[in-house]
Amino acid sequence: MSESTKHRNAAAAHPVTAAVIVLLLTATIFFTIWIPLYAVETPKIGSWPFFYFYLLAYMPVVAIVLWITMLLQRRLAGREADQ
């Protein structure tokens, strides 16, 4: 079995994990480029307008999501090795 079909099988055998990875990456991109979502002044968080608060608070979220994605990919690769 070639390397490439093995990889496809791993995604096919674990469709949930594979789908979650795609979903997480799409979501991190979407919540940055969908600007009407956060280009607003209110609600204020403390003395910060929402726009500025959102941009700063979103960074750690992206970091955590990418870390989870990496762990999921590793799990996918690990299962592949087991087979």
Partner: peptide, 20 residues
């Protein structure tokens, strides 16, 4: 003003894109 914050937004966006 706020248009300058595109730089903040793009340094968020760059990591999921580069991750792919």
């Amino acid at each position: 003003g706020s248009i300058g914050f595109f730089a903040v937004s793009y340094t968020i966006l760059v990591f999921p894109i580069a991750f792919i």
